[in-house]
């Protein structure tokens, strides 16, 4: 399905059967350029988790990661007109996210936070995390503990290696897309991913021999697969 811009504007009969869920990202952003808010909602639904996952592993703080995810999506809406289909939409979105994350990290390195002086976040700043009624609480706790360890290990990878590494391992962008997002040469992308993987392996090596962890991992993977098969 590749509707033209004119079809959206002038509402041809074929547009009546238009189904946003089946529409390509690149067509959705063209609709957003014409002010279609539903198209934006669809894009946000597709990318919010991916962006959050990437950003959280960069900045480590869930509240900040959510803010930056929102900021990325807002920029997508406001600057939709700047998107040109010379690159994939995902590349464009992750370029925005990467730049925001870099800026934030630069700011933080200039002004290191003093935890004791920071005010507690206001109530409306703390994201509510409602309990998943389906999940087994003990399993959820295990998953969270594991996630904490993995996030710590990821955060210990130097930033310049971590960005291409996460874009590859978590977002599964191709090397060429990572090259576009980061502005690095292809060889540099390749070598940085390789270095990050080696570093990550060193960091999680103590975990890798743990039989319980492997059993947990298999359980989590089975649950994720089940959820994908039965989203309800």
């Amino acid at each position: 399905m590749n509707p033209s811009r004119d079809e959206h504007r002038h509402g041809s009969p074929s547009a009546a059967r238009f189904d946003l869920v089946e529409t390509r990202d690149e067509d959705l952003i063209v609709m957003v350029q014409d002010g279609n808010r539903k198209a934006f909602d669809e894009l946000a639904a597709r990318y919010k988790n991916r962006l959050f996952s990437f950003i959280l592993r960069m900045v480590k703080e869930p509240v900040l990661a959510e803010e930056l995810t929102q900021e990325t999506l807002i920029r997508v809406y406001i600057h939709a007109g700047k998107y040109r289909e010379i690159a994939k939409f995902s590349t464009w979105v992750f370029t925005i996210a990467t730049n925001l994350v870099r800026n934030k990290m630069r700011q933080r390195s200039r002004r290191p936070q003093l935890l004791s002086l920071n005010p507690a976040p206001a109530d409306d700043e703390i994201p509510l995390d409602p309990a998943d009624p389906v999940a087994d609480p003990s399993e959820e706790i295990q998953r969270r503990e594991l996630a904490l360890v993995i996030n710590e290990a990821t955060a210990a990878i130097p930033e310049k290696y971590r960005i291409p590494f996460l874009l590859r391992e978590v977002e599964q962008l191709s090397y060429e897309e990572i090259q576009q997002v980061t502005g690095l040469k292809l060889g540099t992308v390749r070598s940085r991913i390789n270095r990050a993987r080696n570093r990550f392996r060193q960091l999680i090596k103590p975990l890798l021999k743990d039989e319980t962890l492997l059993a947990e991992l298999e359980m989590i993977e089975a649950r994720v697969a089940e959820q994908k098969d039965n989203p309800s």
């Binding site: 946000a44 919010k48 959050f52 959280l56 807002i74 994201p127 978590v170 890798l208 989590i220």
Partner: peptide, 29 residues
């Protein structure tokens, strides 16, 4: 095997967004 396991661990520990993310996004937008 270690590299493959590392990839699996990253995949299995994907964080989830808070429940009110969507309306906060709409509000900010």
């Amino acid at each position: 095997e270690d590299l493959a396991l590392g990839r699996r661990l990253l995949g299995a520990t994907e964080p989830s967004l808070s429940g009110n993310f969507d309306w906060r996004l709409q509000l900010k937008l």
